[in-house]
Design a protein around this nucleic acid. Structure first.
Lengths: 183, 183
DNA sequence: AAGTACGTACAGAAAAAACTGTACATAAAG
DNA sequence: CTTTATGTACAGTTTTTTCTGTACGTACTT
């Protein structure tokens, strides 16, 4: 024995875990495994190498890589003399975390804020309209309160995302825990 | 016109946005719409009422509600004299956010940490083994470094989750932005 | 104790998604 | 300019997920 199998097994275990983990947030298992495989590679890979590595079609590799690019979990790399596109995994997981969630959260925020502001304004005009039933107006009032506090929450989330993007979050939650008792 | 349609439309728009938003994190559109509908209800609903509200089967309501319960996005409510189970949406979105992500993140952390620690120990024994190829050992060393820094990241994520759970995060990112200039 | 109401397990149907192979557009190489 | 290599659009297939209806267990009611 020369240890190759053991090395492979150790990697495979972690790749599985990574893929399961990403799957929790709606990323396909295959895409997760692709990221995991790239993570353990020494250098960047071409689509054909990925295809080989995962035993899947080149088409799948192409679309999977694109998803990972959108999430900023892999980057395109240029290498002299190599004609094919090369991709490598972003190795810094703090960065990966930040990119992944800021992308998702910002998207969610903008979807919701714009819907809620439109509805808020519609409901407000309902209140001013004489022809609207008293009962409906009361419901509208309740809804307006709900939406107002929801918008307030999104403002908070936005500030949280800002603190991730600007890395200020690390002032509050440092990368390494502080040793209070030096020894 | 009495405004009922307008009210309904305003709600529907927001419900759609909520559901799209939840869908970004791997929650079904239907489950998202159920949460959205419950959010705008005045009181808690029974499974039959939900079925009516969404035009879906009772079985689906049952399983969807269960998912929402696991995410702590709805709660079961008891009401005197009512035999059926009653459910209502958790109205506090700060809390919803915290519960949703702490549940997911903690799950992810434990999956990954345990896989990585096992692999880390396997790789370390590989290094101590004389029969293992030099080349393999070098790869193992690289992997060990990767895993070590990944574990460090998970420690950070764990502390981030702690600060959410304990609400300390609000000391850093307050619910309402501070007014520097009082007016 | 018998009858009724309620929630859910389970199997099958319907819908959605992931995956593949072919065909093509683009760009590099000769 | 022609040939060759590369990535991806698209249509069709396979797999997975979601949804429904029936059947059943449990617990309340009479």
């Amino acid at each position: 024995m020369n240890g190759e199998k053991e090395l492979e097994k150790a990697r495979e275990r972690v790749i599985d875990a990574i893929s399961q983990n990403m799957n929790l947030y709606g990323v396909t298992e295959s895409i997760g495994r692709l990221y995991g495989s790239l993570y353990f590679q020494e250098g960047p890979l071409t689509l054909d190498e990925m295809k080989e590595e995962l035993g899947m079609s080149k088409t799948s590799m192409s679309t999977s890589v694109r998803s990972l690019l959108e999430l900023k979990m892999v980057g395109k790399v240029w290498k002299k003399g190599v004609r094919k596109d090369l991709y490598q995994a972003e190795p810094d997981w703090y960065q990966t975390f930040i990119d992944f969630f800021t992308i998702k959260w910002r998207a969610g925020i903008s979807i919701n804020i714009s819907a809620m502001e439109r509805s808020l304004s519609d409901l407000t005009s309902l209140l001013d309209d004489e022809n609207v039933d008293r009962n409906i107006k009361n419901q509208a009032k309740v809804d307006i309160e709900k939406l107002t506090s929801a918008i307030e929450y999104y403002d908070w989330l936005n500030r949280l995302v800002d603190s991730l993007e600007s890395k200020q979050i690390f002032e509050f939650i440092p990368k390494k825990p502080i040793d209070y008792e030096k020894r």
